[in-house]
Simulated scan of single mutants.
Amino acid sequence: MRLAAPVAALVATAAALTPAVPAQAAAPTVKISRIWYDSPGSPDSGANSSLNGEYVQIKNTGRSAVDLSGWTVRDRTARADHVYTFGTFSLRAGKTVTLRTGRGRDTSTTLYWGRSGGGTFAYIWNQSNDTGYLRDARGRLVHSCSYNSARYDYKNC
């Protein structure tokens, strides 16, 4: 019985020094939560109201604010004008920011890509299938969301 206490102490110490192995990789705390790809109005018009009916939402599911300055959102195309780069912007814990395709005045909850005119070429998100990519300021992929259906107007990610 005299060995029970020292053995218990040794087991406790060993357990404390053993690194924890995560069961699976942690989900990103900032992610694309929705892509609304079928905006109202004529797709050929390129009207600002129709462009702003197309958007992507980014949600911070974490417990602290995340600095999105320099982060990017893009679609599947390799076109440089299909990349949005966040300026100075912090997304508070539990909050969502909506990034609209057209023009407007940025707020703490809504940002604007700044696209205009040009009919269908002004839109970012394809009507039937596309992928949205969210990358951090170092260019690392944080989250992506794909859709492949013209059956709905949006995709919850």
Rank of each mutant, 00 (worst) to 15 (best):
A4N: 06
A4V: 14
A5N: 11
V7K: 08
V7L: 15
A12C: 11
T13F: 14
A14L: 15
A15C: 15
P19L: 09
A20G: 05
P22N: 09
Q24W: 10
A25F: 04
A27N: 13
A27V: 08
S33N: 14
R34K: 12
W36A: 07
Y37V: 06
D38P: 02
S45N: 09
G46D: 04
N48A: 11
S50C: 01
Y55S: 09
I58A: 05
N60A: 08
T61Q: 12
G62A: 03
R63W: 04
S64W: 02
S64M: 05
A65Y: 09
V66R: 12
W71C: 04
V73D: 00
R74N: 12
R76A: 11
T77N: 09
A78W: 08
R79L: 09
R79F: 09
D81M: 03
H82T: 00
T88P: 10
T88S: 15
T88M: 01
F89D: 04
F89E: 08
L91H: 05
T96M: 05
T96F: 06
T101V: 15
R103I: 07
G104N: 06
R105I: 09
D106N: 15
D106G: 13
S108M: 01
T110S: 11
S116V: 06
G117T: 10
G118R: 14
Y123S: 08
I124S: 05
I124T: 07
W125K: 03
D130H: 08
D130W: 04
D130P: 04
G132Y: 00
Y133T: 02
R135Y: 01
D136I: 08
D136P: 08
G139V: 04
V142K: 10
S144C: 01
Y147A: 04
S149M: 12
R151K: 13
